[in-house]
Amino acid sequence: MKTLVYIHSDNGISKASLEAVTYAKKIGSEVIAVSGGSSSDLAKLGEYGASKVLVDRAVVNGDAQQITRMVAAAAESTGAEIIVFSHEITAKAVAPRLSVRLKAGLISGAIALPDLSNGFSCKVNVFSGKAFGNVTVKTDKKIISLLPNSLQPEVTGAACAVEEFNSNAGSAAIKVVETKKPEGNIPLPEAELVVSAGRGLKGPENWGIVEDLANALGAATACSRPVADIGWRPHHEHVGQTGVAIRPNLYIAAGISGAIQHLAGVNGSKVIVVINTDSEAPFFKAADYGVVGDVFEILPKLTEAVKKFHAAN
């Protein structure tokens, strides 16, 4: 089975993209990657299983319509039956468009390899992470958008060929006027370690102790909804049912009660640590490790312990 994987490389190749190549390699006999942009790094996709990369240098910061046309052209020229995306921002706009264009059923947010025992189905999160569903695709061509952090990238080979590919993707209808990126931050959906805090922190001026722990760990920061609503923290940090859904390896929740809507976005985390003064806080039921205590004491102590650990290891 030939598998095509779309790689968004305008801002470098993310770990999530490497996961998508590894995933494609586990499904298909031959993996071909397709990308727009000016990246000079694409050959390394071969190490993760791609046999070649098609790159359309005319599609730089392309809009969803252009990228859809490019991937559709690559699907046609390679005859790929399965098209894999990493379920990130670009894919959320492109994969549904491509599904309509190619009449290929879309599995959105897959968390496991497809099951071929009874047709073609794949496990996804439903009900904001409160349950799993199996989606069966009935069409010949299939599109899978893989949730980041569902498997680890694996090096299986060596650098591969990068071929120029003219997909006639047309021009962009959407004009980018400005890009605002906070410097140095780890994007939340990709982070493997996350330190999150809630109303228990009492005010935005107290976030220093949260950031100190995040910096010591190399973690991203997140928050509960009320904290973003009152404006203590930026909206993009809000996790939960109506915020970002994340599944890091480690989620540390400080001063967060653990409301069902909050848990919905974070209970895919592999390990959860909860710090709360209230031993009855519902979050402890979802936690692996719990500390009953005051965040203003515990967070600095934990930061020191992490620093000590890193110094010794």
Binding site: A131, F132, G133, V135, K138, N267
Partner: peptide, 18 residues
């Protein structure tokens, strides 16, 4: 083109270690 054919619930967490 697609259908949800089955569902499952996450496994219950083991007790939190304090």
């Amino acid at each position: 083109m697609t259908a949800y054919t089955s569902y499952s619930l996450p496994e219950a967490k083991k007790a939190c270690r304090m």
